[in-house]
Write a protein that binds this DNA or RNA. Structure first.
Length: 807
RNA sequence: GCCGCUGUGGCGGAAUAGGCAGACGCAAGGGACUUAAAAUCCCUCGCCCUCAAAAGCGUGCCGGUUCGAGUCCGGCCAGCGGCACCA
């Protein structure tokens, strides 16, 4: 069969018949979504193919199972790489992006997937980002967007903000200068308002357990207490602790270097040293700072605070093992019962006051388990939670402590000091302050003629035509916000746009959305576990609370595809020089064979190193199918009443294949589904070679085979389906149903063990009772020999599998 | 470092709820067909010892639970993903 030719032919016919578009039957809708692609490289890579081609097989399977499948495709087209590419080559991000999208559209259509192109979206187009801006305004209007100071990576030499990716080993990737932190006023989304629901909502999702666990840990709920310490100068600050039972052991307190009180509390004689420390700290990133391997450093501010629990005066430090973004940005140092505090205290000569012990009173410090309080006055003898409750209830009366639930989750920073993104639709007016751009004035267009070479300012800030505007409130001169939105904002709601992608009045019609959503199956990389997948859940919940959506979760069921690595086992990358492009394979073998190879060669969720060793073998497999088909298609259907052992075996294999393939396709176990299909083809080929055969059974079996193959090799199966004389598409057919009476055999093979060692096999009737099976085993020669007339101690019978005789 | 995951023949991988490890393939070797090659078909194929059989060993490493562990538990080692401005 000429694969390239039939692929072209059927793609054209499917498009003409609109076979790939959603048919409007919302009652049976199945929204199958793959994470859309980012058009940075000019070409589709194997990872895209693996995600889209194989999930398409799943979608086609669902369609044959009777669902009205909606499977859209689009492009996440804003982002840093296009801008960097522009800086390097001078090619405008818009031009390169649009060109890349065109290339990728062509490559995507060659997959032959049933993408509903009528719903395509591109996030960099004004008809899309208009609604991204709408989303921002809605969140702003509902108190979920706000501004505050936050640090960015700053290269003092390039005078520019760097993405984490652009910081290599603490230095600027362009010029090698050491990168420091710098505070800028930036926009945030208040995702923390939804921390609790984002956590509890995980329970009902059909997501990989590991992904749910990662989100859970990312949200990081912990129960503790906030305690107010008062500095001698009168300034108050709170610390968060999960171990308030150790409060009598506090020997110092620590503020994060970024804590606003650091400057205020520092005494004049310490100012120089503290300032130096804070500056040095700004060179380290959070991963380094949180590393327990890293040497603990800090600096004494010269000031003291009062421990509200015992009135003791303790020194105040700034130390970078405390993060300003977590808890209150301040901790109490209890060296006897915390490992980091212990190391710190040793280094800076702070006292180590033991206040917890175990039953045997033989602990080694630092002792971080719960235990019995000692050296804690009235609380001595209390244990764990009891101690914590007692201490809080006493301090509560003095207003110096309270129980507090804390989340590790932080608000979502969405400002980017970059060009290639959706402008933030806010005007800063000298009189009225921050003013939202009215909805009727959306979109705030991203200007084309912008200087985006880095020189210390947001690219848009240098564009006078963009920046200068009138205040929507007072009409006076005002300036636009020069920042753009994080591209994660664009991708946090795109699944809501697809079902109503051409709507010019609204981002989506709630009526349509509430019928099509939530997404029934979402497929994409595991690397999105904590960010994109969490942001999308947050946006869904926020829009629900505004009354637009009637569902709580965007993605009911989630599957992660694995990563296809280079042939050398490394992640494919230019620097490794190990990139394998799908195009040459698609050109040589056709997309069905390439797809089939990807289906068969990997465990879908695990991926693995690329090797094309097996691609010829799947091509041969299709040849075998075609040879079988050609022999069978001309048969008249004779001997239809022939039914002997061979026919029984064919039926057994056929029905087992239907059962297994059906199940395996449903759970993305494509490789085993193909293995079962290979077994079926082997069995049918063998049967076909018989002199006397039931032609009707054979022909029916081949018909089932084509249907089972169809989702995996759509063009190939469609061609054979029509050669069988059918007029309609095979994808309009019902999926085969297996006959459960034919998937069981009357006789089962048992593994016979003596003392758990294999001694032989025994074929026994399925109808035997455990007792009878035991008798058969005991009279089985190898068993008899070992028992030598003695009674066995025990006989274990596992129905249908194994007999273990314990001698 | 922290969170999460993975580790099975020469290779890709399979193994329901703790029950015959290696399904299905690739590669390799042998054979048939052929003037020859390709294609196709048949056989062998975890390691070790062996003419053969039997025995023994075997799912990253060490230990444990169990009649029985790739699967469960504890401790290591290695690799991968994420760590909030790559998306």
């Amino acid at each position: 069969m000429n694969m390239l030719e039939i692929e072209k032919k059927w793609q054209k016919i499917w498009a003409e018949e609109k076979l790939n578009e959603f048919d409007g039957n919302y009652d049976k809708k199945f929204y199958c979504l793959e994470m859309f692609s980012y058009p940075s490289g000019a070409k589709l890579h194997i990872g895209h193919w693996y995600n889209y081609g194989l999930t398409d097989s799943y979608a086609r399977y669902k369609r044959m199972k009777g669902f009205s499948v909606f499977q859209p495709m689009g492009f996440d087209a804003f982002g840093l790489p296009a801008e960097n590419y522009a800086i390097k080559t001078g090619i405008h991000p818009q031009d390169s992006t649009i060109k890349n999208i065109e290339t990728m559209e062509n490559q995507l259509s060659r997959i032959g997937a049933m993408f509903d192109w009528s719903a395509e979206i591109k996030t960099c187009m004004p008809d899309y980002y208009k609604w991204t801006q709408w989303l921002f305004l809605k969140l702003y209007e509902n108190g979920l967007a706000y501004r505050k100071e936050a640090p960015v990576n700053w290269c003092p030499s390039c005078n520019t903000v760097l993405a984490n990716e652009q910081v290599v080993g603490g230095t600027c990737e362009r010029c090698g200068t050491t990168v420091v932190k710098k505070d800028l006023t930036q926009w945030f989304f208040k995702i923390t308002d939804y921390a609790e629901e984002l956590l509890t909502g995980l329970d009902k999702l059909d997501w990989p357990e590991k992904t749910k666990l990662m989100q859970k840990n990312w949200i990081g709920k912990s129960f503790g207490a906030e305690v107010t310490f008062k500095a001698e100068s009168g300034e108050e600050f709170k610390v968060f602790t999960t171990r308030i039972d150790t409060i009598m052991g506090v020997s110092y307190v620590v503020l994060a270097p970024e804590h606003p009180l650091v400057k205020k509390l520092t005494t004049a004689d310490r100012a120089e040293e503290v300032e130096k420390y804070v500056y040095e700290t700004s060179k380290a990133n959070e991963i380094e700072r949180l590393s327990s391997d890293r040497e603990k450093t800090g600096v004494f501010l010269g000031a003291y605070a009062i421990n509200p629990a015992n009135g003791k005066k303790v020194p105040i430090f700034a130390a970078d093992y405390v993060l300003y973004s977590y808890g209150t940005g301040a901790v109490m140092g209890v060296p006897a019962h915390d490992e980091r505090d212990y190391l710190f205290a040793q280094k800076y000569g702070q006292p180590i006051n033991q206040v917890i012990t175990n039953k045997e009173n033989n602990v080694t410090l630092p002792y971080t388990e719960d235990g019995y309080l000692i050296n804690s006055g009235e609380f001595d003898g209390l244990f764990g939670d009891d101690a914590r409750k007692a201490i809080v209830s006493k301090l509560e009366k003095e207003n110096t402590a309270a129980f507090k639930v804390n989340y590790r989750l932080r608000d979502w920073l969405i400002s980017r000091q970059r060009y290639w993104g959706a402008p933030i639709p806010v005007v800063h007016c000298p009189k009225c302050g921050d003013v939202a751009v009215p909805y009727k004035d959306l979109p705030v267009m991203l200007p084309y003629d912008v200087e985006f070479k880095p020189d210390g300012k947001s690219p848009l800030a240098k564009h006078d035509g963009f920046m200068h505007t009138k205040c929507p409130k007072c009409g006076g001169d005002a300036l636009r916000d020069p920042d753009t939105l994080d591209t994660f904002v664009c991708s946090s709601w795109y699944y809501l746009r697809y079902p109503d992608s051409k709507n010019a009045e609204m981002p989506f019609d709630p009526e349509i959305i509430n019928k099509m959503l939530p997404v029934d199956k979402y497929v994409g990389g595991a690397e999105h576990a904590c960010m994109h997948l969490l942001y999308a859940r947050f946006i869904t919940k926020a829009l629900r609370d505004m009354g637009y959506l009637k569902f709580d979760e965007p993605f009911l069921s989630l599957t992660h595809q694995g990563v296809i690595l280079g042939p050398d086992g490394n992640r494919m990358s230019k620097s490794h020089g190990n990139i394998v492009a799908p195009d040459s394979y698609v050109n040589e073998y056709g997309s069905d064979i390439f797809r089939l190879y990807l289906l068969f060669g990997f465990n879908y969720t695990e991926g693995g190193p690329w090797s094309d060793d097996g691609i010829k073998s799947v091509a041969k497999f299709l040849d075998r199918v075609e040879r079988l088909f050609n022999k069978v298609v001309t048969l008249k259907g004779e001997n239809s009443d022939r039914y002997g052992a061979e026919e029984k075996e064919v039926e057994f294999i056929l029905n087992n294949a239907i059962k297994s393939v059906d199940h395996d396709m449903d759970v993305f176990s494509f490789n085993t589904a193909i293995a079962r299909l290979m077994e079926l083809v082997n069995a049918l080929t063998k049967y076909e070679a018989l002199e006397n055969k039931n032609e009707k059974l054979l022909k029916d079996s081949v018909t089932v085979l084509i249907k089972l193959l169809a989702p995996c090799v759509p063009h190939f199966a469609e061609e054979l389906w029509h050669e069988l004389g059918n007029q309609n598409s095979v994808f309009k057919e019902d999926y085969p149903v297996y006959d459960s009476t034919k998937t069981v055999k009357e006789e089962v093979e048992y593994a016979v063990q003596v003392n758990s060692k294999m001694k032989g096999k025994l074929v026994l009737s399925k109808s035997l009772t455990d007792k009878e099976i035991e008798e058969q085993a005991l009279s089985f020669a190898p068993v008899k020999e070992i028992l030598n007339g003695n009674k066995p101690k025990k006989v274990i019978v596992i129905k249908g599998r194994l007999i273990n005789v314990i001698a």
